[in-house]
Structure formats: C-alpha cells, structure tokens
Computed example of a mutant assay.
Amino acid sequence: MNAPLSGLCWLKHRKGRDRAPADLLAELGRSQIALTHAAFHTLQPWRAAAHLEELLMACGILSQVDKQICEFERWTIRHLATVTEPEHVRLIRRFVAWDVQPRLRARAERKPLTVSSRRGFSSQVIQATRFLSWLGERDLTLTDCGQADIDAWHVQHPAHARNSIRGFLRWCIANKLTRRFRLPTVVIGQATPMPQQQRIDLLGRLLTDPDQPLRSRVAAAIVLLYAQPVSRIVRLTLDDVIHDSGTILLRLGEPPSPVPGPVAELLLSWIDQRTNMNTATNRDSHWLFPWRRADQPMHPETLGTLIRALGVPNIPGRVGALHQHVLELPAPVVADALGYHHHTTTRAAAQITATWTRYATGPRPRKPAGWTPTPTRDK
C-alpha cells in the first residue's frame, strides 16, 4: 500500500479493552480462532473482525461470501443476545435458519445483495421479535393468537412494521405455529416526483459548479439523468463505463445508455481521481465509487448523504427522472435500458397517464437509435 504506516496503525489500534486486529491475527495463527466465516461472525470487536474477514476474502484465504450475508449473520448474533425470553430466542433463531437465511442466500445467488435488501430481512426479524414481545405483554402465545390479535397489531403499528411482519406470520401459518388468519393488504407509499424544471436546474448546477466535490456531482447526475437508486450506483464498475467510437456509454441495462458530453467529462475526470485507492486491497479496485473496506464499493448511505448535501433529494429526483423517461419512450424500453422491472416502468407510465400501454403485453421494442437521457424542457 502507498501509506503502509496507516495499515500498521490499524493493526495495532485497540479501543478500551477490545482486542486489536493484530491480536485477532495472532489468535488465528495459533488456531485459537477457526478459519471460518461462522467463527469471525462471533468475534469482538466486530468491526475489526468484519474488516479482517473481508481482507481474508480479498486475499483468497477465506471463501467468497456476499458481504451482506456476512453482515446479516453477524447482526443476528448481536440481536439475539438482546432477547431475554428463551422461547422467543428459540423461535427467532428457527425463523432465521429455516426461512430468512434461505431467502437471503437465494437472492444473493441471482445478484449481489444491497444494503437496503439486507436491512429489509433484518427488519423482518426485528418485527418478529417485537410481535412476540407484544403477545407476551397481552399474556398470549403464538398458539393463542387469533384474527382479532392480528388486526390489533396492525392498527397499533406503522406501515413499515405491518409490512415487515408478514414474512414471519406466513412462516408461522405454514409451520402450523398459529391458526390461519387473514393478513391486511400491503400499502406501498409513492414518492412525489421532482418537477422537471427543478431537475433541469439541479443538473445545470452540478455541471457548472466546480467548487462541489466531484464524486458527489457525478453520483447526483446519475440519479437525475438515469433514475438510478444509490444502491445500484455504488455497484457500478469501471467495466460499466464503455468507450464506443468517441461516445461514452453507461451500462445500466441493455443496451448501454449514452452519456451526454458534459456529464461524460465529469465521469471521466472522476475515474482519473477516484478516492480510497491507497489501501493494499484497493489499488486495483474496479468499483466506480470505491470504499475504504477491502474490495468493497461505497456504502449507499454514505453516498446518499453526499448527494443530499448538494441539495439533490434522492428519491424525488429519481422518480422525476423515471417519469420523464416513460413520457418520452415506451415503458418496456425504459425498463431494459435503465435496469428496472417492467412492472415498475409500466406503473410509472400509468401514474402519469402515458400512452404506451399498447406495449405492455407485446414484444419488447428496442431502444431507438441515438436515444439519449439528456433532459428536455416540457413543451
């Protein structure tokens, strides 16, 4: 690494009575710590253990496992340690082992997990724990739970809790831990899209304000131009930036999308100046937005905070961009180009009364030649 002293300082750093990373390495060398992911998930301090686990994976010493699966398993151990009722611990551990983890691993096999998806699974475990405690406060068990209790829970809790508990309740019904009951319909909130004029003005400011951080400007431009969530932006790699006969393309779906000239200049400048490239495992990082952790992209929350610091609201900006695209092109074309599910773009088109519904069930048309996501003013 370019600055080895920083690595040596990390190895020796300890907080309070916690073991330093060098202590963990020594115990690993003495076989006091098994060279397995399960062993690392129980170590303290957990942040140092997590970083060391990622270093060992990057070096090929530990087998590659999706980082979010490791984070979830590590979090589950800490969460169960806070549950005081033994029967609740047994039920939650069973729910995690036989339902949550298989679904988490199945999703990871299809594509890399995002922080938001991992937190969604964690939320299911949290709400299951709270539901069991709520039943206990009412002197009830799962066996006693009936439709009236389910309705009472949904009345007393916010939408997020109501939606997150569904997986646990369905698992209980399937395993005959409870009687059968009806679950209320899931309600999904819709964000208010950013007005087109505001989106254009923000893009103009991003392109003309050199005093703002380059990394933030590039990420915010991808949000406002291509309607990409931050969880996808952090997964972009250098291979997704394509040079084609003097044109810069960005692979978000198929085919890759052209990058307007001014934004392309920002993007190429950022690639030449990427930060967090000094650690030993990141010198050849392929991430467009690399992070300090071994072979890991930036954390979505960190990048999202940087984008909001520019005055760019992430979700309204993304929804506004998506709505503009489905106004200009058929929803299936937008879905293919920007990496969205066809149902999402079709729903967006229906919300703004777009006239592309004839493509909903027919063959998916290809994106027209020369298509560019450069925003245009409403006429």
Rank of each mutant, 00 (worst) to 15 (best):
L310D: 02
R107Y: 05
G317S: 11
T192W: 03
A148Q: 14
E254I: 10
T361S: 15
A174F: 02
M57C: 13
T178F: 05
R274G: 11
L236I: 00
E87R: 14
V234T: 10
T353Q: 11
L214P: 07
P313S: 07
F95N: 08
H243V: 00
H13Y: 13
G167I: 14
G339S: 12
K15M: 06
V65G: 00
V187C: 12
A349W: 13
G204K: 05
Q64N: 09
E109R: 15
T372L: 08
T357D: 13
L202V: 13
F289N: 04
I126E: 09
L207K: 09
L267F: 00
T36N: 03
T237S: 06
R90H: 13
A191F: 02
H325D: 08
A106K: 13
Q324L: 04
S117K: 04
T344P: 08
F72E: 05
L25G: 01
L250Q: 01
T355S: 13
T141W: 06
R138M: 06
H160K: 13
N282P: 11
I242S: 07
S122R: 12
L267R: 00
I315S: 02
P313F: 05
T346H: 07
H343R: 15
Q156S: 15
C70Y: 02
R105W: 04
L55Q: 01
H243C: 00
R138E: 03
Q197S: 06
Q68I: 02
S123Y: 10
R347C: 06
D66K: 00
